[in-house]
Structure formats: structure tokens, C-alpha cells
Design a protein around this nucleic acid. Sequence first.
DNA 1: AAAAGCCACAACCGCCTAGCC
DNA 2: CGGCTAGGCGGTTGTGGCTTT
Length: 388
Amino acid sequence: MGRSPCCDKVGLKKGPWTPEEDQKLLAYIEEHGHGSWRALPTKAGLQRCGKSCRLRWTNYLRPDIKRGKFSLQEEQTIIQLHALLGNRWSAIATHLPKRTDNEIKNYWNTHLKKRLAKMGIDPVTHKPKNDALLPSADGHSKNVSNLSHMAQWESARLEAEARLVRESKLRSHSSSLLHQLTTTNPNTYVLVNSSSSGSTSAQLQIKWPSSNPSNNNIDLESSTSTLNYNSDQTNVNNASSSAVGSAIMKPAMIEFVGCSGSSETKEECGDKEDWKSHLSFTSLGLVHDHQTITMSMDAGSAWPTAIDHQVGYVAADMAAADQEGFTNLLLNNSDEVQSLSDGDHGGDSDNGGGSGSGSGSDYYEDNKHYWNSILNLVNSSPSESPLF
DNA sequence: AAAAGCCACAACCGCCTAGCC
DNA sequence: CGGCTAGGCGGTTGTGGCTTT
């Protein structure tokens, strides 16, 4: 693909913009709109390339840009979305009105990344750097690993969703059918999160409408309600019924989109890596609330064929109500986080993990709330978002 | 007071993709 | 179908201001 000649042209100015140049650009765009950026500099009397003009406009001159210090809420949003999306600044920026991707990127690189690193949190994985020191014999480390992998899976899910948006334009019939299904049938549930790669387990999340009043506070990520797949549990029915206990059971419709058909098997979608990325989901905007259902699935197990054919039993995970979990620790109380990393978990109840359990449990609870808050953030994201 | 180091942010660079011809 | 361009995006750099020595 050809690359823009852009500012390589002789005679074009580079470097910081002067107030006069800003004024010319502003005046021109206010009067004519930007139109073709390539043609704009000449018309506006600027010795700049179109790309430079576009960047100056989008990152600085645009009237709907909010400048100045980031609020605590904005910081929290950035951290949560970065945990989920990585360095996809434009996607993050869609959730921060009036902030540009460039501004967010700079703020991350100069403030937030360093702050997390200073606290012993890996700014890439959003995990405490000394994870390996945490207890493993009780299985908590495995759960923590699962949770952290959710970010990778969520990323894959988002890519799949973006693909779905494109595909949906070509598949208006099926999309409208699904829309009708999810907006008219309160017992229809939509798969929203897929499972992890390269790990010993994986998680599936399913959303359902909030109209069921009896679903509150059921935590399927707890040790008693996590839904596990293994070679003995090859379908959703078996997995859920063996694990849910007192959780309320509801029939669910799960649709896989993205392999060429909804009933394809794992093999038809390729290997594990492939089928992970091929999982695609209905728009979150169709779901009435951000209640989630979580199941975990052993990545080494047989493909859960029952999922392909939609009906299984699932249960709700409503545990993410506490929005002031791990992230707020990161934002507000570095001492507590340091204590957490050191294995000294004497933080107060505000961290969402103040159940009085042991240190490993506290850590697990904090981490779980951290990721839950991220997922809730995503689930509550505007449906018009290009990603969600 | 001056030099060195650090920090924050604007701007640029280079790659990618969609769309047009 | 392939070439070309515009626009978008993320990574990186340049520079001015501030702080420290």
C-alpha cells in the first residue's frame, strides 16, 4: 500500500504550531469544514501537510476537546480499559468523552504506567509483579490466573465483536433475528465472553436480561459455583448442573458467530487459538443490563458441543456490584497495594475484599473485583461504541 | 546562578486498511 | 484485480519548562 508522501515535501513546515497557524486552520475549518485534509493546507494558506493539519485539529484545536487534568474517574476508566484493551488508545478514547487518544496515551505513558509500576503492578498485565510468590496449593493462584487471562480473552472477544459488526451488515437477516430474540424474549441469554488460550482453564460469560428479580448475588466464580468443563463434562448441561449448587438455573441460548456457521465444531474453526478468536458475540447493546454469568472451561477438554446447539443451563454471576475494588486501590492507596503485594493484607473494607479471609483469599477477592469492575465497565459501555 | 537531569506533552513517523479508480 | 491515496492508529521523538544539584 502506498504511503502518504505527507510532510516529506520540500517547503512544508514541521514542528510546533504557531498561534497564527492555529488561527488559520480554525478559521478555515469553521467556514468550510475540513473536507479533504490533503487539499486543506493550500486552501487555508498553511505551509503544512494535510496530516499535520488533521492531527493539530483532532488533538488540539477541535472545540469539543476537554483539556486539563484528568479526574479520578477518568483515571480509573483508563486503567480499567487499558487492562482490557491494551494500548488501543482510540478504543479507550471512545469511552472518555472529550479526550483524545493521543492525550490518553500520553497520560498513560507519563503518569498511570509509572504509578502502577511504582506500586508493583505490571502495567501491561495489570497483575502484581510478584504473582509467583502467591500461594498456589489452595488453588487460588489458578483462579487468579484465570481472571487475568480474561483480559486477553476479552480482547479477543472485542476483536470478534468488531468483526461481527462488519459481518452483521452483510447478514442483516440473522442480525435482525437475533435482535428480535434478545429484545423480545426475556429468557434469551447471550454469550459475551470467551475463554482463554494456553491456560489450563477458560471462562465463558453469558449475559441475561435483568428482568429476573431472583438472580441477584449469585457468584459463579466462587469455588462452589464455577462451572468447569473437563473431559467428563462435555456439554453445558453437565457442567452447569454439576457445579451450580443453589444457583438459580435458567435455560440459555448461546450463539457462536464468526466461524462460517453457528453450529460448527471446534475443529471446523481451527485449533484452540483460532476458535478462540473466531468466537463472536451479539452486541452488548442488546442486553438490558450488565449482569453476567460465568462458566469456566478446561481448555484441554473436549469441545463443548452442546454449546453449538444453544440450549444449556447457566447461572448468574452478580458479584461485581462492588465497583470500588482493586482499581481504587491502585488509584488511591498505594500503601495498601504494596501490602497486598507483600502478602500483608490488612487493608480496610473499602477494597472490596474485606471478608476477613486469609491473605491469599484477600488477594483473590481483590483481583476478582478488579476484573469484575472492568467487565462491568465494558458491559455498561455505550452501545454505539465502535467496539462494544 | 548555571548546568544537568527529568518530565510532560505536542508533534511526527511509519504502518495499516478502506475505498476509489 | 491491482495500484494508489486518504485517513486512522500506535509508537516514538523533540522540545520547552521545571526541578535538582
